[in-house]
Computed example of a mutant assay.
Amino acid sequence: MAIYTKGGDQGQTSLFDGLRVEKDSVRVDTYGTFDELNANISLAEKFCQSHENRQILQTVEYHMFYLQGEIATKDTAKFLAQSQTITAADTKMLEDVIDRYTAELPPVRSFILPGASVAGAQLHVCRTVCRRAERSFVKLSRDVHFRPELERYVNRLSDFLYIMARSEDYEALVNDVTQQVLEIYSRLGAAR
């Protein structure tokens, strides 16, 4: 079976509910940018040193499908009847991670470079793509009504990605220092 349908050869695409729209519409740009974000989150997750962070990011990857699906549907009721969607619990999960990691990590007193580790750098890429997706979402929201819970989730997402980047940078720092200490002890033991 071919993966192409030829349905978009004239510059249109189908939304979740079957409605045909122009491929360069704000709606398509918005869910497409969230799709780009999700691919970047998947890449970041592969670089993470923290097992917990990998699990959290995998959960967010699934949330992104629900988010994109709802944005890609003009008839929200049809989407809600056929798919999972973003809930208050999903937004609370982001807030809980933000609050817990903010309390656990050393305070930030100045601007930080975007990523001291590969995972941290990739999560900062995610954060910037998220901000672009959020700007597109806000633009679309001027003409399209979205559920408040979807708006809250989108608004929390970039803060979540920022704190995840900080967490991975800190994890890498701790692992690096631990490795250096072990090497010193190993050299001291060999010298005896």
Rank of each mutant, 00 (worst) to 15 (best):
Y4W: 12
G8F: 09
Q10C: 13
S14H: 10
S14A: 15
L15G: 12
L15S: 09
F16C: 12
D17I: 13
D17N: 13
G18I: 08
G18T: 08
L19T: 13
R20F: 06
V21C: 07
V21M: 04
K23T: 04
K23N: 07
D24N: 11
S25Q: 06
V26C: 15
R27S: 13
D29A: 15
D29G: 05
T33L: 09
F34E: 11
F34R: 06
F34T: 09
F34Y: 09
F34W: 06
D35K: 03
E36P: 06
I41R: 02
I41M: 04
S42D: 10
S42Y: 04
L43N: 12
S50A: 11
H51R: 14
N53G: 03
N53W: 00
Q55L: 08
I56T: 10
I56A: 09
I56V: 14
L57M: 14
T59N: 13
T59R: 14
T59K: 14
Y62F: 10
Y62C: 08
H63A: 04
M64I: 09
F65N: 08
F65L: 15
L67H: 12
Q68T: 08
I71K: 12
A72C: 11
T73I: 08
K74M: 08
D75C: 10
A77Q: 15
K78S: 09
A81C: 07
Q84F: 04
Q84L: 07
Q84Y: 06
T87S: 15
A88G: 10
A88N: 12
K92R: 12
K92V: 06
K92E: 14
M93A: 13
M93W: 04
D96I: 01
V97I: 15
V97C: 11
V97T: 12
D99M: 02
D99Y: 01
R100D: 02
T102N: 15
T102V: 05
A103K: 05
A103F: 00
E104M: 00
L105Y: 04
P107E: 03
V108L: 15
S110R: 11
F111H: 07
P114N: 06
G115P: 06
S117N: 03
G120L: 03
A121Q: 01
Q122R: 07
Q122H: 05
L123Y: 01
R127M: 11
T128A: 09
V129M: 08
V129D: 05
R131V: 14
R131I: 14
R132D: 12
A133Q: 09
A133S: 13
E134R: 05
E134T: 03
R135L: 12
V138P: 03
L140S: 04
R142F: 03
V144W: 10
V144L: 10
F146I: 02
R147Y: 02
P148F: 02
E149I: 01
E149P: 01
R152W: 09
R152T: 09
N155Q: 10
R156F: 06
L161H: 11
M164F: 02
M164I: 05
A165I: 03
D169E: 05
D169F: 01
Y170K: 07
N175Y: 00
N175K: 00
V177N: 00
Q180V: 00
S186E: 09
S186H: 02
A190T: 01
A190D: 07
